[in-house]
């Protein structure tokens, strides 16, 4: 049972490194020291950051911790006392839920249409104007960078309340976010069909429509569905700042405070159920789209 590969002598294992084991161990030590210093710095920064955040906060952490369950407790207790109302209240808010879902769906559709055009225009090898690809990419970056709530607030000022500001705001962000993903999917498209169509004299739109879109359609739809899930949440939140839908109902009920907490819980349950259901459905649909089952 002699380890023949290292020869009969009981010498230490030969090392490939010039300095033998010493160099390797020194390297490891150095890495460990650097890692330790980085770790300590990180812990220090985190601790200082939390301290600073706590100082600039209205209430501090420890006193707040005791009160953490006060509000949910109060809300749930009242809702439990009036639990007979819940199904009726949930039914009452279904129209608002439908509005929220419509906002999400329309903005996803509009955003995806714009994103598709932007993605094709900014993908190498497919772009209509290859020199302008940078411009279209920057446009997507900017559209992605602006938070939806900001666009919505400005649009509410111009267009008045209602669902349209929310639709436009979410669609803008969606166009930026999906544009990037769409373009990554389009980069992997097979270029041979495009060349084939080009050789028979097809125009740019025909090439994209007939050669690229059929290839990317499953991926694009999957991304768009995922975005729809995100946009349902976003449209509920935007409702909270003043454009229609179930978020607005939730805000009104919350502002009312005690006495309407059963409504808060009803709206919340409805929204939660809708989000979970949509997530499940879109999960299944996406699996079918991508796996091609």
């Amino acid at each position: 049972m002699v380890d023949v590969s290292f020869g009969p002598s009981p010498d230490p294992r030969p090392s490939g490194l010039p300095g033998g084991n010493h160099a390797y161990l020194a390297l490891m030590r150095r890495r460990r020291v650097y890692g330790g210093i980085l770790m300590m710095l990180f812990v220090l920064v985190m601790a200082a950051g939390w301290r600073l955040a706590e100082e600039r906060n209205a209430g501090d952490f420890l006193t707040g911790l005791h009160r953490l369950d006060d509000f949910p407790g109060e809300v749930l207790a009242e809702a439990w006392a009036k639990r007979a109302n819940l199904p009726g209240l949930m039914w009452d808010h279904v129209p608002s839920l439908i509005e929220t879902l419509n906002i999400a769906a329309v903005s996803t559709l509009l955003g995806a249409l714009v994103a598709g055009a932007l993605a094709l225009l900014s993908t190498r090898g497919l772009a209509r104007w290859p020199r302008l690809t940078v411009l279209f990419r920057r446009a997507q970056d900017a559209a992605r960078a602006i938070p939806e709530i900001v666009v919505a607030l400005v649009l509410i000022y111009i267009l008045g309340g209602g669902p349209v500001p929310a639709v436009l705001a979410i669609a803008l962000h969606t166009a930026g976010a999906l544009g990037k993903l769409f373009s990554e999917a389009a980069e992997n498209a097979d270029l041979r069909p495009v060349e084939g169509l080009a050789s028979v004299g097809a125009g740019w739109v025909q090439r994209m429509w007939l050669a690229v879109l059929p290839q990317v359609a499953p991926n694009w739809s999957s991304y768009a569905l995922l975005r729809f899930e995100i946009n349902v949440r976003a449209s509920a939140i935007l409702g909270f700042v003043g454009s229609g839908g179930i978020g607005y109902d939730l805000k009104l009920a919350m502002q009312w405070g005690g006495g309407k907490y059963d409504q808060v819980v009803a709206i919340f349950l409805l929204l939660f159920a809708a989000i979970v259901l949509i997530d499940r459905l879109s999960d299944a649909a996406r699996r079918r789209l991508v796996k091609g089952a």
Partner: peptide, 21 residues
């Protein structure tokens, strides 16, 4: 599953407004 919005509201009641919340 509970949206960040709800967490924000619940936490703001306990800790008050501010960056820590």
């Amino acid at each position: 599953g509970i949206d960040a919005l709800i967490w924000t509201i619940v936490l703001a009641r306990a800790f008050g407004p501010g960056p820590m919340t």
